[in-house]
Design a protein around this nucleic acid. Structure first.
Lengths: 159, 159
DNA sequence: TATTGTTATACTCTATAACTATA
DNA sequence: TATAGTTATAGAGTATAACAATA
């Protein structure tokens, strides 16, 4: 019963979007949390990387710079993120969560985790262990690293 | 080392969007495949459910009816899907892949699986088995079922 | 010249509200 | 009256192209 990589890939292709959809729907329906999943991920990153520059956030989220710039602008307008100039390198900006941003991030994190815990409820301890182990295997394989997104835009035109 | 459901949920919340992002970026960068992930999922559903009605597709994708209607319209305009009236119940439409739709679906499926296989390359057979088993555990927990999306719109107004 | 970020423009994804047609 | 689907409208997610400012 050892699966081929192809079978495993096909399962990923089916299950991952399904989980993503469930996440979106349940976060949406559980009102009082006015964040989309990408916005939540941006807040989560800034919670762990205080003062991060825009490029870092874009890399983490897998977005181009203009897309990330616009999203951050909306979060700044909402009062969840502060954006200040970096004194060492004035091209850069330093982003961090406002108190309201911390609060919102925490609340939505709780909500999302609670919803997932409910979904996982049919699994026993043994099965949870298997899932957790598998996720630990997958995590490093899909970790975003600098250059993956941006280089495709700004690679030297020597083609 | 048995994880709590909360820990497992937190891992899902981190890993699933990362995989989704990788999928989007790599499908996007691997040109000649002009489909987004949601469009691909719609084609995949119609490949396995010939003649499905719009509501079925919407439920599978976790979309509202207007959203699904618009997406299908674009796929019809692109020549990938055919939309015909259901003679038994003329409110319904019957959707199916055109030959071009089948071809495109197959090509993008190959591409996406190939990309995932590359990502999974560092795993050995044993680890692949663990991942596959975990995905099989997760799949039924997040399977979309009728009513999840639409009832929230059309529930009897007796509140 | 290269890097960081923004602005302009455009398309898809997604929703709610209002509507038509059929049952 | 309820169901299936479309149209209208709007906001977020996403991209490329062009630009400004700084290094």
């Amino acid at each position: 019963m050892v699966p081929t990589p192809q079978q495993c890939a096909a399962e990923l292709l089916e299950v991952v979007p399904q989980i993503m959809t469930a996440l979106r729907i349940e976060v949406r329906d559980h009102h009082a949390t006015e964040l989309t999943v990408p916005q939540f991920r941006a807040l989560a990153y800034l919670d762990r990387h205080v003062g991060a520059a825009l490029t870092e956030v874009a890399t983490f989220l897998g977005l181009t710079l203009p897309t990330a710039s616009k999203m951050i602008e909306s979060l700044v307008d909402s009062g969840l993120v502060t954006r200040t100039a970096d004194q060492r390198d004035r091209r850069k900006i330093q982003l961090q969560l406002s108190p309201a941003g911390q609060q919102t991030h925490h609340a939505v994190l709780e909500t999302a985790e609670h919803l997932l815990v409910n979904k996982l409820e049919p699994l026993n301890a043994d099965q949870l262990g298997h899932v957790s182990a598998a996720l630990s295997l997958l995590k490093p394989l899909f970790k975003p690293h600098a250059g993956e997104v941006l280089n495709s835009l700004q690679e030297p035109l020597a083609g």
